[in-house]
Amino acid sequence: MFPTPIEKTRATTRTLYNVALPVALILWLLPLIAVAVTSVRSGGDITAGNYWGWPTSFNLLENYTAIFENTPFGNYLWNSFRVTIPTVIGAVALSCMTGFALGVYKFRSNLLIFFMFVAGNFVPFQILMVPVRDLTLDMGVYNTATGLVLFHVAFQTGFCTLFMRNFIRALPFELIEAARVEGVSEIRIFWYVVIPLMKPAIAALSVLIFTFIWNDYFWATVLTQGAESQPITAGLYSLNGQWVAAWHLVSAGSIVAALPPVLMFFLMQRHFIAGLTLGAVK
């Protein structure tokens, strides 16, 4: 193991490390800790400039209910779910199929199609912006969750295909061969042989896509406007304009907006990391 395991080092180094670890963590997360503390401050603290001292009062409930009152915060949050969940289902379903096709079958344009998905996944969003906005308008789904879902599903299919295809490649091919010898149809092989083996990949991708889509801001501003359809990222930005210098509300809003992906991450940690490092570690 590198660096040298700390338990094999001198006692001073060990003590030093044990002190350095929490200190580094606090420094690293200082901005977030500050936000969390601010989110329970009173408005009075903020106007008095008491940003960093001890809060004069703890307004946890007040602040967190205040963001839902008088603002469409709940709406924004709900919209985020309405966009994120169908996107996850759609993108994972499509890429199970594309990944299967590209991972199992040998045909001439296989690599070409695979590279098309991979390359498309890396293009800058801006080159898609104008045509995708037009397309969304033409289909009559501009400013709806459906419009966002359709685009996200299509775009994420690129990344998901890359992931699924590499995962399927690593599966034991003999299983598929054996099923073929038995005369099982290709569709049944997909459903009864391959899908059950893909469960870890499906879990990993779901968490990852959930986080990506939940945190999307660019497409939310391009394809939607107004509280009835915008997700929380765009909503938080417009509320930030409304809550000028009301940092306790902005902070509480930020915390709530960050919560779902953070919970996802902690619940599904192992899968999440597996998803991020695709192919990086063989």
Binding site: L94, G120, V123, L135, L150, T157
Partner: peptide, 14 residues
């Protein structure tokens, strides 16, 4: 289905 969606929303728009 995957190619259709990807072509419509990513490849053609480029």
């Amino acid at each position: 289905p995957g190619i259709a969606m990807f072509a419509l929303y990513v490849i053609f728009p480029i």
